[in-house]
């Protein structure tokens, strides 16, 4: 199934879901759940929360299917729901007020004492650099490179303008490059 066929199938499934067709809902779930889970996992950083929010997301999809106006792709709409619920979850945790206000995130606290770069190959350095950029930047890069969305779809998901998306992608790249450079210098020093 190519991308266009897939979009049309998702639309068809959502229309059937709106009238209570559980088989259509199951198929829509099968088509989209992995991407949604990945997106949630990257935002929430733990499996259990991602699963809990995933359940709420698809409950909302079932309940809100009638309200879908077709202004965006079905997957973009589902990602929008996922993002809202993930933000609520983050607010509940009082972890961060808004993802756009995220400070630089450090997933690996061991780097505070100096990471074990000896064993770090190129891919690990890249991974480490990626973990050091803000969640806001990680999110936009996830949407481009993992979810393979175009600028318009990202704009619909994040509710920001296409120009903001483009700018954010380039800022994310610059932040990543900066972190990568720091880690490579550190690696070379060792």
């Amino acid at each position: 199934m190519n991308k266009e066929q897939s979009i049309s199938r998702e639309n068809e499934l959502l229309i059937k879901t709106a009238v209570g067709d559980e088989n259509a809902f199951r198929e829509l779930y099968d088509l989209t759940n992995k991407a949604v889970y990945f997106y949630l996992y990257r935002l929430l950083k733990d499996r259990e929360s991602a699963e809990d929010v995933q359940i709420d997301v698809f409950t909302q999809v079932w309940k809100g299917a009638k309200k879908f106006k077709g202004k965006s792709k079905v997957t973009t709409w589902i990602f929008g729901i996922a993002r809202n619920l993930a933000m609520n979850e983050l607010r509940k945790r009082k972890y961060h007020v808004n993802i756009d206000d995220y400070p630089e995130m450090t997933q690996d606290n061991s780097t505070d004492q100096g990471p074990d770069l000896e064993a770090m190959d190129q891919k690990k350095i890249i991974k480490n650099a990626m973990s050091k950029i803000s969640s806001k930047h990680q999110e936009v890069l996830d949407l481009v490179f993992f979810h393979e969305m175009n600028y318009q779809e990202i704009s619909d998901t994040l509710h920001v303008s296409v120009n903001t998306v483009k700018t954010r992608v380039f800022y994310a790249k610059s932040a990543f490059k900066k972190k990568l450079k720091q880690l490579r210098v550190y690696d070379d020093d060792i």
């Binding site: 759940n33 996992y41 699963e51 995933q54 698809f58 891919k123 890069l141 790249k173 990543f176």
Partner: peptide, 26 residues
């Protein structure tokens, strides 16, 4: 950008898989 793209290659395998009963929970 290719460095970033490299990061996403095989990323799916690094994410822990969701529980298999997730749909029934939904």
């Amino acid at each position: 950008f290719s460095d970033i793209n490299t990061y996403y290659q095989g990323m799916e395998d690094e994410i822990p898989q969701p529980a298999s009963n997730l749909y029934s929970r939904v």
